[in-house]
Design a protein around this nucleic acid. Structure first.
Lengths: 190, 190
DNA sequence: AAAGCTACTTACTAAGTAGTAAGTATTTCT
DNA sequence: AGAAATACTTACTACTTAGTAAGTAGCTTT
C-alpha cells in the first residue's frame, strides 16, 4: 500500500505553490500558510521542518507532474503541434490567474537556497527543457515543425519566452503574452 | 547647481542593486546593507525611509541609465546590429558575474510592491522595450535586420530570452545563455 | 558667532520570523 | 487491551525585521 499524504500536507503544498506563484518564495512565511489553512505554524513545521523542505516538496511535486506530462506527450495519435499547444496552455492558464511559473519565480531566489534544493531545481528545469526538446525534435523529424536552431536551443528560447512572458504579462498586460505565444507557434510552423 | 548625492547614498543604491541581482529583493534586509557598508541601519533609513523607497531609487537609477543608453543608441555612425550587440552585452556582463537583471529579479516580487513602485517598474520595462524596438525598427527599415514579427513583438521575444536567459545560466550553465544570444542575433540577421 | 542644515549614531521598539519541546487526541498495529 | 505511530496543538524561544525618536558632529549660511 502506498503512503497516502494527509489532506493537510497536500493543502500546504498547494498553498505554498500558490504563494510562490503570486508573491515569491522569500515573501511568504509559515504564518501565511497556517493562518490561511487555520492550523498552527507548528503543524506546518511538522510536515515540512524548514522552509527549504517545503520548497523541495513543491519542486518534487512538479517533477512528478512533468514526469506524467512527459509520458502523456510520448503517446501517439497527437501531433507535435498539439503537444506544444498543451505545453503552452499551462503557461496561458497561469497568465490568466495572474500567477507566474514557479521556476521563474524561484530563479531570483536561487542563491538563498541550500545546495540540495538548487540541485533539485536544476533537475526540474532540465526535465522541462527535455520534454520540449523531444517534442520539437519529433516534429522536425516528421516535417511537422521547422526551425533553424537545434531542438535544445529552440527549447531554451521557447522556455525563456514563456517563463518571462507570464511575468511580463502582470506588468505590461496579457496582450504582450499572447503575442509572444503566437510568435512561438509561428516560428516553428513549417 | 545639481543636487549631488553623498557617497553613502550612492553606495547604498549600488549595494542594494547588487543584493537584488544576487539574492532577490525580498531576501535582503537593511542590516545586510548597514553591515557591509559599516554604517548603522538608521543611516540607511535616513536616505531611504522604507525598503520600497530604496527599490524606487534603484529603479529610478536604471531609468536614468537607460535614458542615457537610449540617447547613445540614437547616435548615427553605428549600425543596428552593433546597437543590438551593445544591448546584449549588458546581459552578458551580468551573466559573467552570476547576477541577474533587476527587472527579472523583482518581477517575482511584483505583488509585494506598493502601487507607486509597480508603476515605476512598468515605466522602466516599457522604456527598455522601446529602446530595443527602435533599434529593430531602424535595422529593418534600412535592410540591415530582418525578422517576420513586428518590432514590438520581436523586442518582447528578445527581452524575455535575455532576462530569463541570465537566470537560467546560473542553474544550467553559461553555455545555454551563449546559445540563446547567438540565436537572437541569427534570427534578426538578413 | 549664532542658527540651521546635513549626515549621520545611539538606543530603542513592536512585530514578525523560523523553529522546537512537550503534550494530546485519534487511529493503527499487535 | 495495550503499544505505538500519526497528526496535530500549546506554549515558548531566540532572532531578525523594519522602523523611529532623540541626540551629535561638522559644515554652511547669514
Amino acid at each position: 500500500m502506498t503512503v497516502r499524504p494527509t489532506d493537510t500536507k497536500e493543502e500546504i503544498l498547494r498553498l505554498g505553490t500558490e504563494l510562490i506563484q503570486v508573491y515569491g518564495y522569500n515573501a511568504f512565511s509559515y504564518a501565511d500558510i497556517s493562518k490561511e489553512l487555520d492550523i498552527k505554524n507548528a503543524a506546518v513545521h511538522y510536515h515540512f521542518p524548514g522552509k527549504e523542505d517545503l520548497l523541495a516538496g513543491i519542486i518534487d511535486q512538479y517533477i512528478q507532474r512533468y514526469k506524467e506530462l512527459g509520458a502523456k506527450i510520448n503517446a501517439p495519435g497527437i501531433t507535435a503541434k498539439q503537444k506544444l499547444d498543451v505545453f503552452i496552455s499551462r503557461y496561458t492558464d497561469l497568465c490568466e490567474q495572474n500567477k507566474i511559473c514557479i521556476i521563474g519565480s524561484v530563479c531570483s531566489d536561487y542563491n538563498t537556497m541550500p545546495e540540495s534544493v538548487k540541485t533539485k531545481l536544476g533537475e526540474l528545469i532540465e526535465m522541462v527543457l527535455g520534454i520540449v526538446e523531444k517534442v520539437l525534435q519529433q516534429g522536425k523529424k516528421n516535417g511537422e515543425l521547422d526551425f533553424p536552431e537545434t531542438a535544445r536551443v529552440k527549447s531554451l528560447l521557447i522556455m525563456t519566452n514563456l517563463a518571462a512572458g507570464v511575468q511580463l504579462a502582470r506588468i505590461t498586460g496579457k496582450k504582450d503574452y499572447m503575442a509572444i505565444c503566437k510568435s512561438i507557434i509561428d516560428q516553428v510552423s513549417s
